[in-house]
Design a protein around this nucleic acid. Structure first.
Lengths: 342, 342
DNA sequence: ACATAAAAGTGTACCGGTTCCACTTATTTT
DNA sequence: AAAATAAGTGGAACCGGTACACTTTTATGT
């Protein structure tokens, strides 16, 4: 472990002032003779000098770090979002501080406190729905906050990037209705989540349009974590007149639901048609290949990063941006045409 | 956007010196009267004051940030590793800077430069295998470097945490041999990667022990990215005497391989038994449920974080730590007992 | 050749915390 | 009651860069 050289060590070794070294470090900040520049660069290399980001940041709060606060990263949807966000950020020379909330508001507030102390220039987050005061404070502090995937209705001034949840669920439900299904179940996210609610709304709309009766027993809200999805599936199978089709609109619970269906001996799509909100390569490898709603994660990531950097990169738009990108319904083999049985 | 209050603003508003405010901020750093502490805390809350991490870090390089440099995060294995690492780090009050290399040494070197400038206390990485000089420099600088999953043999002084690749591949191969298979194929990682090589070595050992002939045609190295896995699968199916069993030891290529097998009309396990290195919930939902090698990701994460923080947290062990945790072979239904055909 | 402008380089205050040391006041010891 | 000790607080240097104001050197124009 060697002692780290500072800019003053470099200046001394090169026989120039620190100001010149700083200029070499930041091209464009002032004139430096070519010979001097070369000499300083040589000394920096010899000494193994690297400027400290922390010292730099002290002067002007820097748009060089971005907070990414997700529920978790084990969920493939969030994982791929994180992957894309990191790539987008790196392409702009921005670093990403990754944090998870585990869907816990207490943890969320701790993470947010850390992000405040670090003075990150922007935050991309899947909010739990609480900690309103902190979110507001963040914005007052000038931090660009972007909610991705979900939002908080009582914070309308925050930018949001998500898929069109209403339309996605509507389209999925409509597809099932078009295949003759009259009893269509849905397992969505918690009623407290905007995604959960919006998808249910789209579902209801599709039923209405198709002239189908709405049965509250067919509508299930499940928590994002734990066995909630599986339990909802079991409950759905156990009602008097069980559904012949199911929309699994809670991405985090897709495998739980499928596991339960499998254990219950359900034959997809013969006894139950299924559409899932999930875009893992595995969905195509299943027997049968699953019909899915695919979220364009790359677009979500690109827009999120862009918005999270907007204030600092100029474009101080007055109104909050709400970007809804279209999801794609990919038809495969888990939806059967229902024979009119009665 | 309000102007951010500094410690001096707080001091003035509370009618004390900055030194006192600093002591309030860092309990244990000096005496403060209870009444004063309360007053200062009140002012901090009123002003919405939050100390800047950057300013803090300037004084003493702080063990408060850790770099996590992975190939990518869309691969579920890395995603879950990232998830666990973040949790472990947070539990210790450490933040995680997430970066990806896309398996590209150029990108890797850029990321490493950034990590040096940020003076992170530790780095957990899946190295591409190049950039030896930079890795060495990092260590000289006193950064705790931990390679996870893979390693670089020419850097024996770096800590490594991984599963026992040799033993895992040996056990998987031995299981297939025990089921009567004599033509066992393997698709592993690139020959340049330690995981790729170690797994092949374990495979060879199992064949030897079982008294089976080794056929180089049955051994395939595939890149981590792109269609390499699928191509290897096709090649394997196309040889004169194709295998009756296959070990997919390249986690990143599992779905690619399965997709190709599926397209080729292969019936698992009737015409081909399969064992994959992968532990997604989906493997259990496949038809048939896949026999897998499960990596204890939580252990990998825990040990990695621990080692990455070891220097700063005391324990300046002299020799590099090499931790190999056992992987678990989970038998399900994708391995068939081979009838003696000839 | 001389004025003038541009280029190159220097000194130093500053960013926002932390910490050492000096100093004052209260408490304890003998 | 005097001396020793402890508690509470303030002043200022410092961490490692950046940037402004300023001086010195070199180039340009007529």
């Amino acid at each position: 472990m060697q002692k780290q050289p500072t800019i003053r060590d470099v200046a001394q070794a090169a026989g120039v002032s620190v100001a010149v070294v700083s200029r070499v470090l930041n091209p464009g900040s002032g004139p430096v003779a070519a010979a001097t520049r070369a000499r300083v660069n040589g000394v920096m290399k010899d000494l193994g000098y690297h400027p400290r980001t922390a010292a730099r940041e002290l002067k002007y709060g820097p748009p060089t770090t971005l907070g990414l606060l997700l529920a978790d990263v084990s969920n493939p949807f969030f994982a791929r979002l994180a992957d894309q966000v990191v790539q987008e950020a790196h392409a702009r020379g921005i670093q990403v501080l990754l944090m998870t909330t585990q869907e816990d508001d207490q943890l969320e507030s701790e993470r947010l406190a850390t992000l405040i102390e670090r003075r990150v220039s922007g935050i991309i987050a899947t909010p739990t729905g609480n900690n309103l005061a902190i979110w507001k404070q963040l914005q007052d502090l000038g931090t660009d906050v972007v909610f991705v995937d979900r939002s908080i209705p009582s914070l309308p001034e925050v930018d949001v990037v998500s898929i069109d949840n209403f339309e996605s669920a509507r389209a999925a439900t409509a597809l099932l209705a078009a295949h003759g299904h009259r009893r269509i179940g849905i397992i969505s996210g918690p009623a407290a989540s905007t995604t959960g609610r919006d998808r249910i709304a789209g579902y209801r709309h599709a039923l209405e349009t198709a002239g189908l009766e709405q049965d509250e027993l067919l509508i299930r809200h499940a928590a994002f974590r734990g066995p909630a999805g599986g339990d909802a599936a079991s409950a759905l199978l156990g009602i008097e007149e069980p559904p012949t089709a199911l929309v699994v609109a809670n991405t985090a619970q897709v495998t739980e639901v499928l596991r339960r269906l499998s254990h219950a001996g359900i034959d997809i799509p013969r006894t139950l048609s299924v559409i899932v909100f999930e875009d893992s390569p595995w969905t195509e490898l299943m027997t049968p290949a699953l019909t899915i709603v695919r979220q364009p994660i790359d677009l979500l990531a690109r827009h999120s990063v862009q918005l999270a950097l907007s204030n600092t990169q100029g474009r101080t738009s007055g109104k909050p941006n709400v970007i809804r990108v279209a999801a794609e319904l990919v038809e495969r083999s888990s939806v059967a045409r229902l024979q009119f049985s009665k």
